[in-house]
C-alpha cells in the first residue's frame, strides 16, 4: 500500500468502534443524569442541563487549545497536515461552541428568568471567545495563496489560544459571581453521585469531539487522496482546479 493510502486508512480505522463507544458513553451519561444523579435542591430538574452544558464547554475550549498546539507545530515544522488538524479542531469546537451558547442560554432562562445574563462571567467570556473564533474561517477564505493562508491561520490560532485564558480572567474579575459554582462551593462541591455522572458525561463529550474530529479528518484526507488518484489516472486535466476555499489544501501526493 502506498504512503497516502495508508495514511487515510490510519484515519479511517477504528472509526466504527470509536463511534459505538461515543454513543454508548453519551447514552450512559444521559441515563445516569436522569435516573441516578439526585435532583438538585435549588434548581430541580433544570439542573440536568449541567451534564450537557458544562462538559460541552470544557471540551470546546480544550479543542481551541488543541488547535493552538497544532498551529504551533505547523509553524515549527511547516507541515500542512498540522494545519489541517488545527483547522478541523477549531471547526468542531465552533460547532460545539454554538451548542454551549444555546444550552447556556436555556439554563439562564430557567435559572434567572432571562435568556441572556450579562453579569454571568463564564457565559460572557465564552461568547467573546466564540465571536473571535468565528472569524477564523472568513480570515482563511480571504487569503488566496494556500501556503500563506495556512501560515496566517496558524498565527491567528495561536494568538486566539492565548487569548482564551486572559479573556476569562478579565471577564471574571469584571462581573459579580452569579454563575452556579458547581465545583467550589462552601459545602464541599458536588455530591459523589452527581460527580460520577458529570465525569461520565465529560468523557462522553470528549469522545464525541474525538469522533467528529476523526470523521472530518478522514473525509478531508480521503477527498485529497481521491483528487490525486484521479489526477494520476486521467492527467492534470481530469481534475478541476481547486477553487478558493477556507479549508486547508493538502500537498498533492
Amino acid at each position: 500500500m502506498t504512503g497516502p493510502a495508508r495514511l487515510t486508512m490510519l484515519y479511517a480505522t477504528r472509526l466504527r468502534a470509536l463511534s459505538i463507544a461515543t454513543v454508548a458513553t453519551l447514552g450512559g451519561a444521559l441515563t445516569l443524569a436522569f435516573f441516578y444523579a439526585p435532583m438538585d435542591a435549588d434548581q430541580g430538574f433544570m439542573q440536568k442541563i449541567f451534564y450537557v452544558h458544562v462538559p460541552m464547554a470544557i471540551v470546546a475550549l480544550g479543542g481551541f487549545v488543541f488547535g493552538a498546539i497544532m498551529a504551533i507545530r505547523h509553524l515549527r515544522t511547516g507541515d500542512a497536515r498540522y494545519d489541517l488538524r488545527a483547522y478541523v479542531a477549531i471547526h468542531v469546537s465552533l460547532v460545539l461552541g454554538a451548542g454551549v451558547l444555546i444550552t447556556g442560554s436555556i439554563w439562564a432562562k430557567a435559572s434567572w428568568g432571562h435568556w441572556w445574563v450579562w453579569d454571568e462571567p463564564t457565559l460572557v467570556s465564552f461568547l467573546i471567545v466564540f465571536l473571535l473564533y468565528a472569524t477564523y474561517q472568513p480570515l482563511r477564505f480571504s487569503i488566496e495563496d494556500p501556503e500563506r493562508q495556512a501560515r496566517y491561520a496558524s498565527v491567528f490560532a495561536i494568538v486566539a489560544g492565548a487569548f482564551v485564558p486572559l479573556n476569562f480572567l478579565a471577564v471574571r474579575l469584571a462581573e459579580a459571581y452569579t454563575h452556579p459554582r458547581v465545583f467550589a462551593t462552601a459545602d464541599g462541591g458536588l455530591p459523589p453521585r452527581m460527580a460520577l455522572t458529570f465525569y461520565v458525561a465529560l468523557a462522553g463529550m470528549a469522545l464525541l469531539y474525538l469522533t467528529l474530529w476523526r470523521y472530518e479528518m478522514a473525509s478531508k484526507n480521503t477527498a485529497a487522496q481521491l483528487r490525486s488518484l484521479r489526477r494520476r489516472l486521467g492527467g492534470e486535466d481530469a481534475v478541476a482546479a481547486r477553487g478558493r476555499s477556507a479549508a486547508p489544501s493538502l500537498p498533492a501526493s
Binding site: L132, T135, L139, S142, E144, F156, F163, N167, A170, V171
Partner: peptide, 26 residues
C-alpha cells in the same frame, strides 16, 4: 495579518474588536 487578505478593512475590526475586549473591560 489583514493587509495580505482580500477583505482587509473587514478583517481588522472583525478580529481586532474581540481581541481587545479585555482592554476595554480593564
Amino acid at each position: 495579518l489583514a493587509v495580505q487578505t482580500r477583505a482587509r478593512d473587514l478583517i481588522v475590526p472583525l478580529i481586532g474588536l474581540p481581541l481587545l475586549v479585555p482592554v476595554v473591560i480593564g
